[in-house]
Design a protein around this nucleic acid. Structure first.
Lengths: 204, 204, 204, 204
DNA sequence: AATGAATGAGACTTCATTCAT
DNA sequence: TATGAATGAAGTCTCATTCAT
């Protein structure tokens, strides 16, 4: 019965992570207690500890899942064959990020905020965040390269640097949306469009 | 002797906030214990609680001071008389933010990350963050308005939206710098310059 | 297994209350620390807090139990069918109160003293004390009514007032016993008998 | 300057005791902090500690003063030349106790309750309470002796025992007044009168 | 594997008291 | 003597984790 058990384990872990995600999205990593997760998951303390060695391990799993979800999203949006301008790529990402954030079961962008704060002090989360963020930015890198290929973006600039800046627009959107609540994909995209058309002295 | 006392109070509060800032920058809000702050401040438990009613009040003071420092910085850089292109404004901010972050006594941008995560769950921090972030973005708004006045940025776009996007570049820089460590004001600015010159379909 | 669990909870609560009663009887509400109760109960801090939310809740439980014990005693003594003169009722109560007070595990009358002092400032204890004392006095009220019926006590006096005075003899007994140590049920009863036979100008 | 200083000391001590009395009457011995007393007295911490070595010493002074006030009252009421029946003596005491209790600056009977509870555990308060209560009861003893002399009370009963019972009516009055709030000197006296005229089998 | 009562280290906070000025 | 900031021991309570059943 190894296979059944393996599937069972995966299902149980998912059940726990989902419960934890809900709790953490609402109260943050540190005000979420194991008792909260245990209650929300509908399991017993012993059961939860049968699938995760510690609270830190659950936190790592949440961060991994949350950032993984965003990675899947990016892969779907940005790996399309059609050429995307950087601005259009950003716009699509924003629309989908908001859509995912508004799904019931916990705002994934709030988990992101928690992960950022935790990553700086907690090596395990730091490693996960580093890995995932490199992947996320990698998707933008491909967009940038394509844009440089078709002349939308100056070709003599390190594409890594352009990807840094382009990807760098996302945390600011998430933050302003959660904190100030006055940004929308449309407003932010309009601002981006205006900026991207501004006649900036370019590196030649 | 009221004057001495008032000054004394302010000095002691600063002493405590400075100590707390160091601790929090290193370990985060929640892994920083009052014992840490007390030890670092060189005072006794009772003394600290004579100046702050609770740990939460100290956290609020840290957030306020950290974001206030950034506000001062923005005021100095962005309120200049000379016209600044958005890209140039951003570049100057990045340079100074890094300079401040590297000052001994705790990286202020790490406090920022903590504050973002806390603001979502802690109403007191949320209020402070909202207030300060509106001010910060307001500085960019003035830059944008000036840029629209001299034609650097399209005039038919809501300047608030442009400010959202421009200001929105900062969190992404801070995050990538702390998490990935591979962005510098120079690299990020190069990327911004490339993007801002890209021919994006503009709202007409 | 709900039945076992429910019984278990009750048993544990009793275990804690019993331990607390011992401590409080010896040191009073305020000099009894949770550490004392925890040690005396033989449980851990966490276990105790699993059954009572706070020290105040334990104090309330003690007061409730102590005054409840006295109520049971009164019910047994005073609700007899045989007609009791007020003096005889008092005598029996005194004898049994002393008997209970001298049982090992803590003098219940000392808990009473604590409860009196606490009831005035602590609303929770105040509510308990009020409720229980009304019940206790109610038992005397029945004695008085019967005495008025058979002519032992003047019938034209408000029985509530007579119950106030009769019941009012008890705190003075308890207090003198604990404080001065020179009263016994016998001495006090002898005094009562002498007073009750004194020719007082009666309401006619 | 010894005399001025001595008077000064006494005045200051009274000032502190008065402040403490107000606090304790409202919040009890243990919830009254030295900070409360210091604030209420209008002095500084150092000053208060210049007149009292410790909080316990202040508590002792309060208890002493409160019970002393009652003693003065008893002396005035009960040491009159005119013969008083026990019931009449009690009635006069109740009236005056309530009058004193209702004076502004703290209900002295609430201090009494605190003192009873404290006396059992705190040797210093115990000693004061014992001394004062013996004096208080002594006043009743004189009333009883006079009543026995003129035949109002049976002469063959130990007057100490009668004094125990008679004095024993007072705590019950105070307690019911503070706790239940439904007793008055009139209601209680009416009850006493009814009881004292009841035909109790007397020791012959 | 599951349960959930129990554990106990450690967090935050208070407050009686002291002492440099 | 007076001040009041400072002290630090001690108190209440939480919560991640374990283990007997």
């Amino acid at each position: 019965m190894p296979k059944v058990t393996a599937e069972h384990r995966v299902a149980r872990r998912e059940q726990i992570v989902t419960a934890a995600l809900t709790c953490v999205s609402e109260h943050g990593f540190h005000k979420t207690t194991m008792a909260d997760v245990i209650r929300e998951s509908g399991l017993s303390a012993g059961a939860v500890y049968g699938y995760f060695r510690s609270k830190d391990e659950i936190i790592a799993a949440i961060a991994d899942q949350a950032l993984g979800t965003v990675d899947d999203l990016f892969a779907e949006i940005l790996s399309t064959e059609e050429p995307l301008t950087p601005a259009e790529a950003m716009r699509r990402v924003l629309v989908h990020v908001v859509a995912i954030a508004e799904r019931p079961g916990g705002d994934i962008t709030r988990i992101g905020l928690q992960a950022w704060a935790e990553a700086v002090h907690n090596p395990a989360i730091g490693a996960i965040a580093r890995e995932k963020y490199k992947m996320l930015r990698g998707h933008y890198l491909r967009v940038v390269r394509r844009a440089q290929a078709d002349g939308t973006v100056a070709a003599d600039v390190d594409p890594e640097h352009v990807a840094q800046a382009l990807f760098g627009l996302l945390p600011g959107f998430i933050l302003q949306r959660l904190l100030l609540g006055d940004v929308t994909p449309e407003s932010y995209s309009a601002g981006i469009d205006a900026l991207f058309g501004s006649s900036t002295p370019q590196t030649t």
